[in-house]
Every structure is written in structure tokens, then in C-alpha cells.
Nucleic acid binder design. Sequence first.
DNA 1: ATTTTGATTAAGAATTTGTTAAATCCGCCT
DNA 2: AGGCGGATTTAACAAATTCTTAATCAAAAT
Lengths: 230, 230
Amino acid sequence: MDRGDFRKIFLIEDDEDIGFAVKEALSSKGFEVYHFLRATEFFRAVEKEKPDLVIIDIMLPDFDGFRIARFLRNRPDLSEIPIIFLTAKISEEDKLRGFELGADDYITKPFSVKELIARVNAVLRRANREKNSKVFKVDGLEIDIEKVEVTADGKEVKLTPSEFKILKFLIENYGKPVSRDKLIEKVWGYDHDAYDRTVDVHIKHLRDKLGKYSKYIKTVRGFGYKFDLT
Amino acid sequence: MDRGDFRKIFLIEDDEDIGFAVKEALSSKGFEVYHFLRATEFFRAVEKEKPDLVIIDIMLPDFDGFRIARFLRNRPDLSEIPIIFLTAKISEEDKLRGFELGADDYITKPFSVKELIARVNAVLRRANREKNSKVFKVDGLEIDIEKVEVTADGKEVKLTPSEFKILKFLIENYGKPVSRDKLIEKVWGYDHDAYDRTVDVHIKHLRDKLGKYSKYIKTVRGFGYKFDLT
DNA sequence: ATTTTGATTAAGAATTTGTTAAATCCGCCT
DNA sequence: AGGCGGATTTAACAAATTCTTAATCAAAAT
């Protein structure tokens, strides 16, 4: 059950060579890159499809890159889209101006493709911010999402699939109570009609297995359960 | 009624001069900066107080800055905190490593203070945008809708589900009187036929639990209740 | 002064959650 | 196909907490 991937990038860059290089680099990393040579093309496109990230060259023939940023920031439906400026300009003033307009990052040419990718990932990760951390550590408790493994004080805690999924989902919603319904939906699927007490039983098993760390799974009466340290 | 400020920055930098300069620069912009010379000090501090942003120098005498980042990312309660690396290292490899660990930005020394501030703002702005956890603050009273938590002067106020829902609804209608019927409808459901006095009893409990902040729940004779400061 | 509306109190009813044990399901092996 | 073993679900009951009611008291309005 995926939440969408945040991979659609709009690139506005009038230099065909650079644009091509960037597009290639990002495409090879699985991003879906749409390259526009003119701001006007971009404006048309953005009305139809909302990208997850916009990379803007400051110097464009038809429009100033800053104006594109301002346009995006002023449009409520687009104002959340992260922006990375890409430019040959190196003056600090421009850099600051970029940030003032709400840029999420600012990369000056010539730049390393790897760094560009890293920065794109950083910005998107933050925009996405979900299941990026693969290992959670709390006290002596370790949850490795990728390996599907839980250890308490170094010793493995054997969880059943359901138990693990419940724990995982609780941790992903750290601090926030998760209703039984939401848990059932996320762990078993949206159409599954499970008996509420089923969740309780799993929680009970989970708590038993977590031993002294069971205290982190708190029940929030009337709302569900939550994973919390406090 | 404001929504929280995101101004607390933890800075880990062993060079006193640089640390001082950064702290001054950010403080002058209204940030609350805590400067740690050692990672260990930081670890101690972060258990007590959660910063809104962490700026980490990679080269530290006791710990590698990357390890601090890893530590933060693995702690579910701290994993959302943005990280900016601050360092003299300029190798691309290090930069990439930093981003892999989930850095939100990476600034190499020597850097312009203005740029630092701009980047800090960019990162916080983004973090802010993401964090839509609705938190209402009134005086020393805080209501976190998502976490289903209420605190008065930092101490948790334990509310029952009905009490919480009533408070929530009153606050959502800040300043406007809400009739008992509307409350019953919103808290219990439109078909629920409850006795009016029931609401009063819940209000009474709510007021008891809110202590000195109970004064904000006003009764509007002949109509209902409202949440108001005046 | 009387009436109306809200506050307070306490107790029983109702709801929600915890726990246990047994039943069922499911993949896997022979 | 049949049986095994762990995983999951159900069901029933116990325990804990919350909600509602009703009775009485206090305050405000007429």
C-alpha cells in the first residue's frame, strides 16, 4: 500500500545541454523529469499536472526564475511545492533573494550531478518524510523496518507479521494515537472487516513480547493506541 | 492563538569562535541557540528538550557528526528534526554521506553568515510547512489535536474522550458561543438524544481539570458555552 | 419573590479495554 | 489429501474507565 512516490520533477532550464544532463541524471535515478525550455511552457504544464519538485534556472529568456518562484508561492494549490534554484549566478545577493522567495535549495553552476541528486533527494525526503528511516532505536529497543526485525537489548524479539506491521505503523505515527480502524486498514487492508477486539489481542501479544518496553505502547482510551516515550 | 514558533536551534561546534559567531548571528535573528562544544553535551540536552533544528559540525573531538545524525534519525521522537551539517570538509563524498544520512542541508566553511541564516530559514520553513499538527496555544494552555493531548503549563491534562472532543469543538469555534445541541451533535453524533445537563457535567469536569485555565470556558446563559480569552 | 438556567454531586449504567482460552485458518511438509 | 504448527480470530468474561441521570443547590433574570 503505497502513498505515491514524489518523483515528478519539473525542470525549467533554457540551456539544452545542461537541461539534458540534469534530466538524464535524475531520470536514471527513477525520477520522472519534465524539461521545459521556457517559463511559459512550464506555466501551461503546471496547470494540468502538479509536480513534486521544481528546479528552476534563474536566467531564462522569457521570464526571470524568481518570478516563477513567486508565482508558485502565491498560488495556494502550488505553494507547497519545493523549489530548487539552479544557476550560474554566484552573487550572494541572488542566493539570498532565492531563499527569501522560499527556495528550498540553491545550487550554483557548475555543479556536480551527484550533489544535485543528493540535494534533490534531501528536499524530497523532507517533503515526503515518512518511511525514510529504516531503523528506529528507543532505549534498548530496535526496530529494523527493512530487515523486519526487532531486538530488545540485543536479543531478537520474534514477532508475527501482524504484530510487526502494527508496531511499524504505530512508530510511523509516533506520538499520535492510531484508531483501531486505521490499524485494521493499514495492517490488513481497507476492505477487511475485523472485530475490534482482534486488534487488542494483537496489541496484548505485542506487549507481552516487548517485555519491559511494552510501556511505550500506550492506549489512548476512546482513540486507539500510540507509540510514545513520555 | 499562535501555532508554535520553531526557533530553538541546537548547535554542535567545537570551534569556539565559529560557534560563537554562528550563535550570535542566529540569535540576532530571534533564534534561541544552544551551543554545545561536545556531542555528549548535546546528547544529554536533547533528552530534556527537543530542538526545532540541529546544526552539526562534522569534525568533533568526541563523536563523528555523522553519528549524531544517525542517532537522531533512529529515534522516532527525534527523527523529524531537520539537520544542517556545517563543516570544513569539502569532499563530495562527505557531502553525499551527509545527505544520505538525511541532512536537510550542508554548508561548507568558510561560509557567509547571511547564507547560513537563509538556509536555516529555508529548512525551518519547510519543516514548518510539513508539520501541520494542529496545536492551539492559549496562554499556558496547549491543545494538540493530532496527538489528542492537552497540557497546561507543560503538564499533561488527562481528559476523557468526551471532554477532549468538547474542548476541541469549543476551540474550533473560538469566540463563538456553541449551543448544547450543537455540542451534542458534534461530539456524540447527530442522532444522539442526550439530556442537556449531561453537557454541563462534562463542562464541569473539563473546567476542574483545566484549573486556572477554566476561566476561558465561558457559559453563555440561555445559549451554551464558548471558549474565549476576554 | 419567583422562575429559569446553570453548577454540583454522587451513584448506577454503559462503554471501552484487557485477558484468556478455544476455535479456525493457512502455509508447508510428507 | 492429511496432518502439523504457528498465526489469527473469535468469543466470553473481567476490569477499568467514562457517561448519564437525577436530585439538589446556586445564580441570574424577570
